[in-house]
Simulated assay, not measured.
Amino acid sequence: MKAQPQLSIALASYNGEHYISEQLNSLMRQTRLPDELVISDDASVDATREIIADFTRHAPFPVRIQANDKRLGSTRNFEMAIRACRGEIIFLCDQDDVWYPDKIAVIEERFNSVPSIGAVFTEADVVDQDLHPLAKRLWSASKFSPKEQAQVAASDALGVLLRHPVATGATMAFRSTYRNLVLPIPEIIWHDAWISLLISITSYLEAVPTPLIAYRQHSANQIGIRRDHHGQSCSALYGPRALLYGSAHRRLLESTKHFSAGEQKLHRLDEAFRFFSTRAALPESRWRRVPIALHELMALRYHRYAHGLATFFKDLRR
């Protein structure tokens, strides 16, 4: 009989006294308990550390706590937790959500069933600060369409991720064999978009359509559900995406000895980087944007890396 993989949870905390107890209790109610919980606390100044310390005294699994002396920020704090995990599969965990009892068991089963999968992410119920359901589930709120879900199921997660991030870290787990590829995480890049993108290029992502967490939205969310902001400039809106794709391309070129990307995927990543760089540099004058955007449209990049004519006209009007 094959031994169960060792499972780690990487939890990043910061001033989470209002919600972290509910999250920690939900980890204790898992039908498949983790083999360890690693908490990296980002210099909290409220009661978070005391709540965590109390939890460790009765947790049914080992808990290791790392306390940062000064604030590192969300991305670097997650990196600290991920780096300290000892398991073969690493679950990312936000401090303010609630995991449903079968989350770990369902995701572990997917890894065990398909050894080629590098990472798994799932659907979630979007809830308010009191855990009351909101109108949409996470995938709908993130505009992760049924067509794109089918594309991920057909082993082309990269094609979706080059349009927009869809894998939310709070629902994600990945094999620790990819840790040396994804770490360190560039400082101003979303950790979940970075991890899912790199693993989609060097392995496979699986999207599980079952909601396995209550994804809490409240006024203190550091990320929450990402939304398009129509008032943003092209530079502010598209610059971070160009940075994501350009940084990922460089990391993959640096890691070819240990992680195989393939020329076609690297080409798609580089083309997406150039497309978003071009959009980020669109001039303020709408008339001057026309020939630049039209060139990208005729090259079909608006169709491959955005939503075709709809996005093209939005860029002209923005």
Rank of each mutant, 00 (worst) to 15 (best):
G73Q: 06
R227Y: 03
K136R: 13
T122V: 02
I9V: 15
E36M: 06
D94S: 15
Q95L: 08
R226M: 11
I89N: 05
I90H: 05
H303A: 12
A207M: 07
C85F: 11
Q232K: 12
L205D: 03
I9Y: 10
V182P: 06
I20T: 11
K147P: 00
N15A: 08
A306N: 11
M172S: 03
D46V: 07
Y204A: 10
G262A: 09
V208K: 02
V182Y: 07
A214M: 08
R227K: 14
A141M: 05
V106S: 11
H132Q: 13
S203C: 02
M172K: 02
K265C: 05
G169S: 07
H249V: 05
E148Q: 12
R32M: 06
P283D: 01
A81D: 13
E187W: 02
N77L: 04
A124K: 04
A261L: 09
A10K: 10
A81G: 12
H303R: 12
L11K: 14
E284P: 00
S233R: 03
R251T: 06
Y14C: 10
N25A: 14
R86Q: 15
A3D: 13
Y302T: 09
Q149Y: 01
L253F: 00
S142K: 12
I195S: 07
D270C: 10
F78Y: 15
I104G: 03
I104F: 03
W194I: 06
L24C: 11
T278L: 13
L269G: 06
R137F: 05
V127H: 09
Y245W: 09
A170P: 04
A154N: 14
S21C: 09
L11R: 14
W190T: 13
I107Y: 04
K265I: 00
T171Q: 05
T48M: 08
F313G: 03
R76V: 11
R279S: 13
Y238S: 12
K70Y: 11
I223E: 14
R226S: 15
I51E: 01
A214P: 00
R86P: 00
D102S: 11
R49A: 12
Y305C: 05
S13T: 15
I292T: 10
L181W: 04
Y14E: 09
S260D: 12
G118V: 03
L300A: 08
R288D: 06
L294C: 10
A141H: 05
Q149D: 00
Y178W: 09
P184G: 04
S116W: 02
T122I: 01
V166L: 01
P60R: 08
L316Y: 04
P240H: 07
G87E: 04
E108L: 07
R268L: 14
D46R: 11
L253G: 10
V114K: 10
P60L: 06
A12M: 13
V152P: 02
K103E: 02
V166Q: 03
W287N: 09
R71L: 12
K257A: 15
S44V: 08
D54K: 14
S260M: 09
P184E: 07
H249I: 02
I292L: 15
K103C: 13
I188P: 00
R301V: 02
